[in-house]
Amino acid sequence: MDTSPPDPQLSALYQELILDHYRRPRNKGTLEQATHAVSLNNPLCGDEIDLQLRVDGDVIKEARFIGRGCSISQAAASMMTQLVKDKSIPQALALADRMGAMMQGDEGAARDKTLGELRALAGVSKFPVRIKCALLPWNALTDAVQPPRG
């Protein structure tokens, strides 16, 4: 049997912090006074998120989610709902952009303190098929505050 230590890229992917958010998600549940809501799923792998926001003016006062999926998508959702609290919508959208850049392997974004705990997800950029997992909650956020036209 292979007893070699886990691959360093895997250890970077599944850090303690990510597993902690996966197993003890923050802001999981529903909001009574949601002003924005969106449901997204990834039809390829079945990851699901229902995101709710309470926005006052242009400030996100609260964000909660219900979701089912892998550790990456669920940890990303948990971390995101913490990070965007009390951020303005333009600030939240800017964070979504930074998150996207980090997933594309942008090292500057991976060091950007404004991404907070989400920087723990930088290792996902080495696993191209998993990037969509990390971005699922951010795509939900973008859709919620900036509904797609058309």
């Binding site: 292979d2 886990p6 792998c45 079945g46 892998c70 990456i72 696993f127 998993r130």
Partner: peptide
């Protein structure tokens, strides 16, 4: 356990093992 099948598939892939994770077109 609570290890999501996609996480299992990613971890196994690092050992060169290809399995399928998902709903298998049977939701």
């Amino acid at each position: 356990g609570d290890i999501h099948p996609h996480d299992i598939a990613t971890i196994l892939d690092q050992d060169g093992i290809c399995i399928r994770a998902g709903h298998h077109c049977a939701q």
